[in-house]
Every structure is written in structure tokens, then in C-alpha cells.
């Protein structure tokens, strides 16, 4: 059974139809990439999957693990194992990174019927994952995303993913604004998450990230639907020729 199965999804924002009939299926263990020009609806898709308010689903279905995903609230989806790495992570003044991670992890654990992690174990657990992403204690003591550089924000998103260990992770332009070194660190963090039970959906505008996170499938999103699908070589073709031909076809 597919981990995620999107069928004929049409969705609107402020009365404007953005997704116009999108189909996509991700099996456990697979890495999919969605590429598309700016404004093609990539973030819209990621927000709808994560359960953000303000999007109107006109028709279609989204099944996660066989169940109706759209019937769940955002927090229920997250606890069911869906994780969205935000394109624009949000500042949380007054909430330290440590407190944020601990709260989120313990909510996940208690919802699975596990006990909360004790403070010392948690510290070890987070530090081990943070170190791999070049995040030190100092950064974890800061307020979430407040005054973070673009790279710090993206690394902190990946740390959240590593701590929460989701079953389906959606990464919305996690590569944007990163220099090559930061990109490699982030890609290593993502690759470490690959596993037989986990699905990954990498949303990106550029092919560059896919040199480091090699996808099993690549899809082109244009005019609100999947205009083409292929293997990793499709990404290279897009890099060379651009999105024009998909936009023309759709127009």
C-alpha cells in the first residue's frame, strides 16, 4: 500500500484554483522530488498536506497509510508521522529551540503511548543529532528562528525532522538560500533519514539539491498538476532546458 496517495486533487486559495488535478503516489522507502517554477503550487501542495488553514479542497482525495488525510487536523497529521520542513520557517520569540524540540518530541511520544523522555536522555538524544548538523548548544538555547541566518533556519528544520523521525517528510525548498557547504550538511541530514519505512518528498526549484539527495522519482509540477514524471535524469533535463515546454503544453 502506498504511504501517500494523492488522486485528482484540486484546491483553491482565495477562490483561485492553484492545484488543478494532481496525482501522486509515494511508497514507503521512496524518495520523490517535485520540481516546478515559482508559483506553480509547490508550497500550496505542501501546506495542504500539512493541514494548513486557508486552502479549499475542491475535489480529489489524499490518503495517508490508507486513511483520509484531509480529515485530520494539522497536529493530528504531525502526530501520525507527517513532517513539513517549511520553506519559510517561522520565528517563535520566547520559545527556545530546546524547549520546542522537547515539547514536540514528548507530544509525539505520549500520543504513541510512550513515556516522556527524561531531561538527561533528551539532551543526549538532541545533541547527537544536532552535532551532525553543526548545531551547538548555544543555538539550541536561542529562540526558535529568531535572528537565525537562512542556513541556520534550514538546518534547524532538518534537526526537527531528525528528532521527530516522521514516516513521511516533505521538504519545501530546503535548499533555497543555502551555500554549497550548508547544502551538503543538509543533504547528509536528509540522506541519514532514508529508510525502508520512510517516504520523502523533496520540493525544489533547482536541480542542485538532487545531486546530493538522489531521488527515485522526479515530477514536474506545472499549472497545478504533475506535467511529467521520470527518473533522476528528468531533473537534469529540466536544468538544461527549463520548464518552458511543460508550461507551453499546459497553456
Amino acid at each position: 500500500m502506498a504511504l501517500l496517495e494523492i488522486s485528482g486533487l484540486r484546491a483553491a486559495v482565495d477562490g483561485k484554483e492553484i492545484l488543478t488535478g494532481l496525482d501522486l503516489a509515494i511508497d514507503p522507502g521512496e524518495v520523490h522530488a517535485i520540481m516546478g517554477p515559482n508559483g506553480s503550487g509547490k508550497s500550496t501542495l505542501s501546506h495542504i498536506l500539512a493541514g494548513r488553514d486557508g486552502y479549499e479542497v475542491l475535489s480529489g482525495t489524499v490518503r495517508y497509510d490508507g486513511a483520509d488525510l484531509l480529515a485530520l487536523s494539522a497536529d493530528e497529521r504531525a502526530r501520525a508521522g507527517i513532517f513539513l520542513a517549511f520553506q519559510y520557517p517561522v520565528e517563535l520569540p520566547g520559545v527556545t529551540g530546546m524547549n520546542f524540540l522537547k515539547t514536540a518530541l514528548n507530544v509525539a511520544r505520549t500520543s504513541r503511548g510512550e513515556s516522556e523522555m527524561d531531561a538527561m536522555d533528551f539532551l543526549k538524544f538532541v545533541r547527537a543529532r544536532a552535532a551532525k548538523l553543526g548545531i551547538d548548544d548555544d543555538m539550541l538555547r536561542r529562540f526558535v528562528n529568531v535572528g537565525f541566518s537562512g542556513g541556520e533556519k534550514k538546518r534547524f528544520e532538518i534537526l526537527q525532522m531528525a528528532v521527530l523521525e516522521p514516516r513521511l517528510a516533505i521538504l519545501d525548498e530546503t535548499d533555497s538560500g543555502l551555500d554549497i557547504d550548508a547544502l551538503k550538511v543538509v543533504a547528509e541530514g536528509v540522506n541519514a533519514m532514508r529508510g525502508p519505512d520512510r517516504g520523502l518528498l523533496i520540493i525544489t526549484h533547482y536541480q542542485r539539491l538532487l545531486d546530493y539527495i538522489v531521488p527515485d522519482h522526479v515530477h514536474v509540477l506545472a499549472n497545478g498538476r504533475i506535467a511529467a514524471s521520470g527518473g533522476k535524469e528528468l531533473a537534469l533535463e529540466l536544468e538544461e532546458k527549463g520548464y518552458a515546454r511543460f508550461l507551453e503544453v499546459a497553456a
Partner: peptide
């Protein structure tokens, strides 16, 4: 900010509380 917390699994009431406490 509320959505960000909810997207990490924190229920809305707890998210509101967390942000109010932080404030």
C-alpha cells in the same frame, strides 16, 4: 506561529498556551 507548532504535533490549545507563556 500557531500553525508551525501544530505542524510539529502540538495540539492547538497547547500551542496557544506555549506562545502565550513565551510572550
Amino acid at each position: 506561529a500557531l500553525f508551525y507548532l501544530c505542524a510539529r504535533g502540538i495540539p492547538p490549545a497547547a500551542a496557544r498556551r506555549m506562545l502565550t507563556e513565551a510572550f
